Computed example of a mutant assay.
Amino acid sequence: MTAPFPLITAHSGCMDTLDNTLSSIETGIRLGADIIEEDIRVTRDGIAVLAHDDEWRTEDGRLIHISKMSIAELQELVLSVDYAGKSGTMTIARLDEMLARVQAAGITANLDLKTDDSVEAAAALIHHYKMADQVLLTGCGPDRAMLVQQTHPELRKLLNVDTELFLTQEYTDAVRRTCEDAAAAACIGLNVPYQLVREELLEQAAARSLPVFVWTVNEETLMERFASMGIASITTRNVDALVRLKRSLTTETTKVPE
């Protein structure tokens, strides 16, 4: 391989774990991921927690909303999960619990911000743990990216690519607009669903010094394809397979010719 192997980002709910759980974080760390990705929302009293959706069902069938509950109320509940082919029960974890684990492992946290109010809540914890250099903010379209830039320009963020833009405009125009939006908000890279990645995007992003992070690649054949394209990071639920691919390709490149 000529390009460095991409950073391995463990998607929330990697392997057989439930999404946005401490088990997911610990599994990604144990398997050797470089980055741990989790979704961020905020409770009624401003506490950042790990959750993709605002609406949940409790184990006994009640409908609740994270944004309408205090952290004390929320953490008393056992929630029912049926998502991404997985089912079970879980309790809500706090962002500070994630950051403590990522900091101890010496790797990077990818915080996928689901709401604008999660910006301030996440920033406060990032600074509390002195982890500005260990955190990437994602979930940022142009407006949220600009909000981060205006309120916390010291934090690193990726621009989430607008899929609708690529569906409604010519690919070249969508790439140009995306790169312009990233530059306007001082984003350090692009966060792109793998289905939208073409050489043109990679070339234009590279010309503007915007590393490309792709998500979510679970199939091993696709992993090998993207690993050879100069991608900065691959997000996957199948962390074990991507780690094995990295080891096999690294072994091949370090063999001494006979």
Rank of each mutant, 00 (worst) to 15 (best):
A3Y: 11
F5C: 09
I8W: 06
H11K: 09
C14I: 09
M15S: 12
T17A: 11
T21F: 04
L22F: 13
L22C: 10
I25H: 02
G32P: 00
A33H: 03
D34S: 01
I36P: 01
E37Q: 03
E38Y: 13
E38S: 15
D39H: 03
I40S: 00
R41N: 11
V42F: 04
T43K: 01
R44M: 08
D45W: 12
I47V: 13
A48D: 03
L50E: 03
D53Q: 08
E55C: 09
W56E: 04
W56Q: 10
E59S: 12
D60W: 15
M69G: 01
A72R: 12
Q75T: 07
Q75K: 11
L77M: 09
L79K: 01
V81H: 05
Y83A: 11
M90I: 08
M90W: 12
T91Q: 14
A93R: 05
R94C: 14
R94E: 14
D96V: 05
D96S: 08
D96A: 08
E97G: 03
M98L: 15
L99Q: 02
A104V: 10
A105P: 04
G106Y: 12
G106K: 02
A109H: 06
L111S: 11
D112Q: 03
D117Y: 12
A121F: 10
A123H: 05
A123P: 07
L125I: 06
H128M: 12
M131C: 07
L137M: 05
C140F: 05
G141H: 11
R144H: 07
A145V: 09
Q150M: 05
T151N: 14
P153W: 03
L155H: 04
R156L: 15
K157R: 13
K157G: 02
L159M: 10
V161E: 01
T163E: 14
E164G: 15
E170C: 10
E170G: 15
R176N: 05
R176K: 14
C179H: 02
D181I: 08
A182C: 02
A182D: 01
A183G: 07
A185P: 01
A186P: 00
I188R: 01
G189H: 07
G189N: 06
Y194H: 14
Q195N: 12
V197H: 02
L201I: 03
L201V: 11
L202V: 13
E203P: 02
V214L: 04
V217L: 00
N218Q: 06
E219G: 04
E219R: 14
M223F: 09
M223G: 07
E224G: 13
E224C: 11
F226C: 09
A227P: 04
S228W: 09
I234R: 00
R237F: 15
V239G: 06
D240T: 15
A241F: 12
A241R: 11
L245C: 10
R247H: 13
S248H: 13
L249F: 13
T250G: 13
T253Q: 13
T254E: 15
K255V: 09
E258F: 14
